[in-house]
Design a binder for these strands. Structure first.
Lengths: 133, 133
DNA sequence: GGTATAGGTCTCATATAGAGACCGAATTTG
DNA sequence: CAAATTCGGTCTCTATATGAGACCTATACC
């Protein structure tokens, strides 16, 4: 859908707005990522080590745990500390910024829990409607 | 990472909590989907027709526009109305539930905009650190 | 010597996202 | 009268992201 001459995209660009470098999207990408929110909630209980997190989130693979933590670390939400024990241990904890994300996140989670029954109802109605065709 | 005997997963299951049917995830999946939030914001300006939405969101493909709208419709966030004109026209608008999602969503978006400079800084520091290795 | 723990990386299979061609009916343009 | 455009999609094909799970190095325990 890029066949227009004078588009909203031009408007956006004129405003210096770039979809591929959008602050909102770059946060939402994390929040929407399958494991981010679960990890963040787990870390609210205090610093946790790598394998401890893995145990707390049983369905996560090591690969995704590593990757999600790296992403969060890169964005300054999570702090990674290596301790020179044998074997070495690594602790992850929320930074202040990571903490501050929890507030709006809890708003969203609260909404989700409150609306869930309505969503279930809507889905059922939609699916039954679709099945009749 | 499913090799544990007595796990949090068991705890969760005992509490009737099912990750694969989690209200929070099923909302977050939408919010994180690339186009959902953009479409929702666009619909806040009032009902819009299919191709009008396509024009407002220049980078979206028809396929993803269709799919995202269907998902939102199924969950009761968006209403789809077909008018029997020639050619037929289809209008999409926010339902009350869809409207009510905007509040927590704006909280998150506000946070994202406010924290963006800090995130940029964190990313730059992280990438420079990584480059030195 | 075998086993376990630490914190990962690597490969491969599958699921999802995206680009863009195509559709049928009707209306507009040349 | 023929060609192009508009409506709201669907379909196919490819690129990217996700996920499961084997593997790794080093140390400690039995």
């Amino acid at each position: 859908m890029q066949d227009l001459k004078l588009s909203k995209r031009d408007e956006w660009e004129a405003m210096g707005f770039d979809l591929n470098n959008c602050p909102v999207r770059s946060v939402l990408d994390h929040v929407g990522a399958k494991w981010t929110v679960l990890i963040l909630f787990e870390l609210q209980n205090g610093a946790q080590r790598f394998n401890a997190l893995g145990r707390a989130l049983p369905d996560i693979s090591k690969r995704m745990l590593t990757q999600t933590l790296r992403d969060l670390e890169r964005d300054g939400m999570v702090k990674r500390q290596v301790f020179d024990t044998k074997p070495p241990s690594v602790a992850y904890s929320l930074t202040d910024m990571g903490q501050s994300l929890m507030t709006p996140l809890l708003g969203l989670v609260g909404w989700a829990e409150a609306q869930m029954p309505a969503v279930q109802t809507a889905r059922k109605a939609y699916d039954e409607q679709a099945a009749r065709l």
